[in-house]
């Protein structure tokens, strides 16, 4: 692709060569989204945009469009509307993109989505009418040609959005992952956002391999708010292992520090010790365009984590 204009602030900043940061918001089974609004406010100063997740782990949650819209409206923070192809066929995807464009959403992250069998409504019929690559193709049709998949024209207005895709640095065999990303980029992605990485050398390798596509890359990082989250990640998120030292240090805090305030300080310290040099290294010696920081419910880390990079 490459010749699609930068419609979003995220894409504009990437194009100016600035090292960008994005955040993540995870609306769940909720009607009142004030918690999401608060999180967005807390990270607003530090990130150019925030992703709004779409039923991660196959869960039945509030759709991501309305929170994406409300965060932009109420907080003034640009959002990345995450969309999976799990729950919608091409008609519904098309309709939701029109709706998103109608309310001023400028970024969409096109995802396959975890299978509904993994979630809390496990008997649901998963759709997968399009796969994520075909969804990128649909988005290309809508944005670049102003039509649906079959060439039927969009009557009024234009879809002005930039398209992100996902890549998994933990995938093995890696070549299959790299080639698959290439296939998606060729169909019309504007940027690549990776899943979380904990191994710096591995992350650098991955970025290097993806660099051949000349498509900006945001490396995903996941600061660990407490030992519970870290060990959950380590044990239950397949393919991801949290470095032993990091786990050990967090466990030590959990065991030995009883005072809540003190505990927080120590946890932040551990995260900063790990992630600041990590980001420094990525910024210095890779072609990555920025960092996608999945510090969900851990917004207090943004300030100390990102201050030297702003």
């Amino acid at each position: 692709m490459g010749d699609r204009p930068a419609f979003s602030n995220l894409m504009k900043e990437i194009k100016t060569g600035k090292f960008v940061f994005t955040g993540e918001l995870e609306p769940t089974k909720m009607v009142d989204i004030s918690e999401i609004i608060h999180s967005a406010e807390a990270m607003k100063e530090y990130v150019v945009a925030a992703n709004v997740t779409d039923g991660p782990q196959g869960m039945a949650y509030i759709n991501s469009l309305i929170p994406s819209y409300l965060v932009q409206e109420k907080v003034g923070l640009e959002t990345v509307y995450q969309m999976t192809v799990r729950d919608r066929n091409r008609i519904a995807l098309f309709g939701d993109i029109l709706a998103a464009a109608c309310v001023g959403i400028k970024n969409v992250l096109a995802l396959t989505g975890d299978h509904s069998a993994l979630g809390d409504n496990p008997g649901a019929k998963s759709v997968y009418d399009l796969d994520s690559t075909q969804f990128v193709y649909l988005l290309g049709k809508m944005i670049d040609e102003n039509t649906d998949i079959y060439g039927n024209e969009i009557e009024t207005g234009k879809v002005e959005m930039n398209v992100g895709i996902a890549a998994n640095p933990n995938a093995s065999p890696r070549e299959a992952e790299i080639l698959k990303v290439g296939r998606k980029v060729a169909v019309g992605a504007d940027y690549i956002q990776t899943q979380t990485a904990f191994d710096i050398d591995d992350a650098k390798d991955f970025i290097k391999e993806l660099s051949r596509y000349n498509c900006p890359i945001l490396l995903g990082l996941f600061p660990l708010k407490n030992y519970g989250i870290a060990s959950y990640f380590d044990k239950f998120i397949p393919g991801v292992s949290v470095p032993e030292d990091l786990l050990k240090n967090l466990k030590h805090v959990k065991k030995n520090i009883k005072d809540k305030k003190e505990r927080k300080v120590k946890i932040d310290e551990i995260n900063l010790e790990f992630f600041v040099p990590f980001i420094r290294e990525i910024k210095k010696s890779t072609a990555a365009a920025g960092i996608h920081c999945m510090a969900v419910h851990y917004e207090r880390l943004f300030e100390p984590l990102l201050k030297e990079f702003r």
Binding site: T112, H115, Y128, D131, S132, Q134, A166, A171
Partner: peptide
């Protein structure tokens, strides 16, 4: 499991 035409998805591990 998802009937994808352009896989794999991000859900495969090893």
């Amino acid at each position: 499991a998802k009937g994808l035409h352009n896989g794999p998805c991000g859900g495969q591990v090893d």
